[in-house]
Design a protein around this nucleic acid. Structure first.
Length: 462
RNA sequence: GCGUCGGUGCCCGAGCGGCCCAAGGGAACGGCCUGCAAAGCCGUACAGUCGCGGGUUCAAAUCCCGCCCGGCGCUCCA
């Protein structure tokens, strides 16, 4: 397995800390608003990675945090006149529901910043002991220039980073250096606080991820991921905190590219975002179509999402579904014993190269085409081709053939539909095509498509 | 401005120096199948070339240099 490592800035061999196991930390959301397509891409990227590792038989420990205290949450709580906890809980629930609907596997651990305050305090105490941090009247700060290799992740020296820093950030006169950032902020009125050796206050920046990732996964864990916009300052500073504390941090860094809309990054601040919920509500196939669209684009490439590409992706999903429908109609059942070894090898080879999901998916679609042909000609290979296609698609979370969509609420009229399909067959047998077509139109009006196959008609909901 | 990533057919988008006269998906066109459809299969046109100009190499979409254009980062941000 080879992965593009942001730190090395090249594709490197990925060798887990413990053979056969992968520890993965993917920065999760700050919960104060709807997740948008950018969050979906982030979550889907690491879901893909995790699924692929697991498909390969690796034991994955996937950690994704929830940041449940920060300025945005405090601001929203004050604006709405409720507590920070209420805001965080409300939006975390909405976030998790959205991710569930996207078919994203739950991380094995979902730590909350507010549950790790003591660990953060201990962490900061260590930094002070090592003189990598200092206290002022406003809080505790990391002495950034004391950290060896600071800026390596963004490939900038502290001096280069300092060029813009003073101009953009309010310069706190008490800080030794403009680059230094708060590890602990002393409490202000109208803010929740925790007791600490430095007085009541709250955690500063980046420290929650450093404390939680090392706390749960331990030193030298394997892989740390997030969006490219987190490389600086978030990941750079998390890493600095860990190094300054004498810890070994993540050994590989992965960053997914942004989702663009209208040529610009989708983001809260630009207010140009589409929420996951809005996309999901727009079409029942969109959860799977979004996953397909993202998988068809390499995770490190910026992707523009609009209604046109979503429509194209939905057609792709339909193509895979149609194959399975056709196979089922022809009496083919999925097997776990027969496989197309060549396709499996191609798939694995593509994914092993820095998660080459677009190429991996190309082998799936090749399989779909070959399977369709085999079904048409009643070829003996049909069953293994179909099974392999379904297995590989599902390895990427495309939910082929599972209880996708709304299977439970569609039972009430099934008998009626089947009766109509039967009447149409009888009409066809009597060569009463006008009647047959009338029934087909009626079914279409109910959102039902009927397809005639060599083994009789099959129907499905659009 | 500095840093970084990218510019491939009608659209999306792979392509890890020779297996690329460039994958896969979508759309289009023709044929087969069908009572007609749908789905599917087969085939065709699309990129004679991979933003532009140089260079390295026996060989470049793939490496190097310059230029043009765009994204992202330098600020909360997935």
């Amino acid at each position: 397995m080879r992965i593009y490592d942001t730190l090395e800035r090249e594709i490197v061999d990925f060798i887990p800390r413990i053979a056969g196991e992968v520890s993965l930390y993917a920065c999760g959301p700050t919960v104060y608003d709807h997740p948008h397509l950018g969050h979906a891409r982030q979550a889907l990227t690491y879901d893909m990675a995790r699924r692929y590792f697991e498909w390969n038989g690796l034991k994955v420990h996937h950690v994704a945090n929830v940041t449940d205290i920060d300025d945005n949450i405090i601001n929203r709580a004050n604006r709405e006149g409720v507590t920070e906890t209420e805001i965080a809980e409300e939006w975390e629930t909405i976030y998790i529901e959205a991710m569930d609907d996207l078919g994203i596997l739950h991380p094995h651990d979902r730590p909350h910043a507010t549950s790790y305050v003591q660990e953060m305090i201990d962490f900061i105490a260590t930094l002070l002991e090592r003189e990598a941090a200092y206290a002022t009247e406003s809080g505790v700060y990391l002495r950034v220039r004391s950290v060896p290799g600071y800026g390596d992740l963004v490939h900038r020296t502290p001096d280069e980073l300092a060029e813009g820093a003073g101009a953009r950030v309010d310069v706190d006169e008490a800080k030794e250096d403009p680059l230094d950032f708060a590890l602990w902020k002393h409490g202000k009125p109208d803010e929740p606080t925790w007791d600490s050796p430095w007085g009541p206050g709250r955690p500063g920046w980046h420290i929650e991820c450093a404390a939680m990732s090392l706390g749960i996964l331990g030193d030298g864990f394997d892989l740390h991921g997030g969006g490219t916009d987190l490389v600086f300052p978030h990941h750079t500073n998390e890493r600095a905190e860990a190094i300054a504390a004498g810890r070994t941090f993540s050994r590989y860094w992965m960053h997914n590219a942004m989702v663009n809309i209208g040529g610009e990054k989708m983001s809260k601040s630009l207010n140009n975002f589409t929420t996951v919920r809005a996309l999901l509500d727009e079409h029942p196939l969109n959860a799977r179509a979004l996953r397909l669209l993202l998988l068809q684009t390499h995770y490190r490439k910026t992707l523009e999402i609009n209604s046109e590409v979503m429509e194209q992706a939905r057609e792709g999903v339909k193509r895979i579904d149609a194959m399975l429908r056709k196979a089922t109609g022809a009496g083919i059942t999925l097997t776990t014993t027969e496989r197309d070894p060549e396709a499996i090898e191609q798939f694995r080879s593509a994914m092993d190269h820095d998660f080459g999901s677009p190429e991996a998916l190309a082998t799936v679609f090749d399989l779909v085409r070959r399977a369709n042909g085999a079904i048409d000609t009643a070829d003996a290979d049909a069953s293994s081709l179909v099974s392999t296609a379904v297995e590989l698609a599902n390895a990427m979370g495309l939910s082929v053939g599972s209880s996708q969509g709304s299977s439970e609420d569609q039972d009430d009229d099934t008998a009626e539909i089947e009766a109509m399909v039967e009447r149409r067959s009888q009409a066809k047998a009597k060569k009463d095509f006008a009647e047959a077509d009338t029934i087909r139109d009626q079914l279409a009006a109910l959102g039902i498509t009927v397809e005639d196959t060599a083994t009789g008609p099959i129907w499905f909901r659009n």
